[in-house]
Design a protein around this nucleic acid. Structure first.
Lengths: 190, 190, 190, 190
DNA sequence: AATGAATGAGTCTTCATTCAT
DNA sequence: GATGAATGAAGACTCATTCAT
């Protein structure tokens, strides 16, 4: 039904290629081929390659943030449950399209980021920081710089998922429960 | 005395540029300029750009491993002390040259890795896995796949250090102690 | 109408330059300028410079062979008349585009020949050998290795034509008749 | 005894490489390696690569001419005997070092020739022309432009010898006699 | 709107030549 | 005199971008 628009095709193709090859090693013709459009067509939707990267990044991280906020309880719930919610949210998003997570976390892209992309990173990180901050206020999470705690959880998660994604380890429900507990133990008050 | 050889100058220049710009966005003239050598000189020491990347990577990760093993007690010591040793080793190495750690963990490079480089990654990860495995045998570390635990610690550390490196947070001795405790809590038996 | 295609323009420019300067002394920008196309355009039609050389060579020698076979009588005619036919064919081809003959006989190219090009040389020489062989069977041509006789005629012709081409001698009809007779005398039975 | 001087070593190495690879495809380091001297040493004897080429060419063609004139009877002998002398001289020279003949006749070199080299070619060709001219005066050789006849003989010979040199045909004494006769028939008065 | 042939600026890499030892 | 490490100018080739169709 939903006829995929050319623009979406380009987004999808670019996402996969940027994730797997990086920005510089991905050529516009590659994207065009993969998206089944002419090379010139990309320029009807994006001013240039860098703009494509930035729009794609902002879209992706926005979707990431939406996915995390999705069904996030506004009402106060135990911090541990919030953490559960976020951890599963991260995982569900990562599973839904591993390339999207990989793309978002590709360090090589930062060189080409416009201010707006940097801002969207801040917004994303701000959300995670805020969650941690609330947990701290409730006395459940250690009183350490929120960004430090956030990077522990996020950094650990990214590396873990990359490992799963390579097929080196299977993300069974049981293992996921255990890993969630590990990360919770890292930041909770003992 | 310590006449820095051209090859070392090239290594140093390439390390910084690869770390900060990535492989593809770094041009050979950039490296030559930064190393204060002619562009052609690089090719006296390295067959091509990719070989330079791989030699640099293998050298860097070998130094990393050496730094971690450096003074690593052969005799059985409490696992917690081993963990302390490794965590401090990671940090000391990272501090000694932040670009070196960033370069080693640049995801974008993998596309250009030769088998030998992949092997050196395995060797490095193997060491960390082994440490975790010993801790498990002593009953101090959770019985989960060692690679999962390793990625938690390593991934968290990398992201943490990157944050420090950006100057967003200061790595005070006290904070480092606390973060070390966090990561230990993530993997220890409770 | 006869819109000369870019590929043909490139072929024509490369032919002249390769003939007059040789493969190595001809740069791709030279070819591009001469063909009035962008340097990158050449690569849309030819994988690289060597492929351009080989395609051009095979095309040229095929045209040469076609020119010689053109109107070549299938029915048995006197060997002397066959010789006449070939000699004039050589000359007509050479005259039609002196660079083409020079290019075909540039010794320097052989270093860069692919197997297919070597094969096309064999095919061409095979035709000339066959002609000589038939003449031998009819008792008109000396019983010597055909390749030796062929090299006499062909080598003499190439040097002769090169001399004409330099403008050092004019190829009058009368002279051509006489030279044809000379070469015939070289290989005929006396 | 005759300690080969560096200069001679360089000449010898360059001769082989220029003959087999051509001027442009031969690098100075190649020549240096082959001559077992340092790359810089070449420049002590030759201003640059082109000068090396020209000096080598002039030396080679002078040797060629000397070889042909060597023992050439000043006194009037039958033209046929003169022809025999020259034909054998060509062959002996070619056999003594096939690369030398190949080098002399490499068409690709002409692009880099200085006037002096062109002059030495003229001198060489002049000698052959003169021989033919004398034969014409004696009524033994056809009255055609001497350069045409010369190119027939010389061009045929070069191609023949190249064929021998490739090992495609063996230059037996008998065959040589026959080929000499062929070429003589090409230019003699019948 | 869509295409893809064409472009040329920019990259990697080679190699003639220099010069400090 | 001899060397070979060092240089940088020049060439092959790629690819982001344009534009005629």
């Amino acid at each position: 039904m939903a006829k995929s628009s050319k623009k979406d095709d380009i987004f999808a193709a670019a996402l996969t290629l940027f994730a797997q090859r990086g920005f510089d090693a991905t050529t516009m013709p590659m994207i065009a081929d993969s998206a089944q459009v002419g090379a010139g067509t990309i320029y009807r939707y994006f001013t240039n390659k860098e703009v494509l990267l930035n729009e794609l990044f902002q879209k992706s991280i926005r979707e990431f943030l939406d996915a995390l906020k999705q069904g996030f309880p506004n009402e106060p719930i135990p911090v541990r449950d919030q953490f559960h919610h976020i951890f599963r949210g991260l995982f569900k998003f990562a599973e839904s399209d591993p390339d999207r997570l990989k793309f978002i976390n590709s360090t090589g892209n930062a060189l080409h980021f416009h201010d707006e992309s940097k801002e969207s990173v801040n917004e994303f990180m701000g959300f995670l920081n805020e969650c941690i901050h609330k947990g701290q206020q409730q006395g459940a999470i250690l009183i350490l710089p929120t960004e430090a705690l956030m990077n522990i959880v996020y950094g650990a998660f990214i590396h873990l998922f990359e490992h799963f994604n390579k097929g080196l380890l299977e993300a069974t429900p049981e293992l996921m429960n255990q890993l969630e507990e590990c990360l919770w133990n890292a930041i909770r008050v003992h």
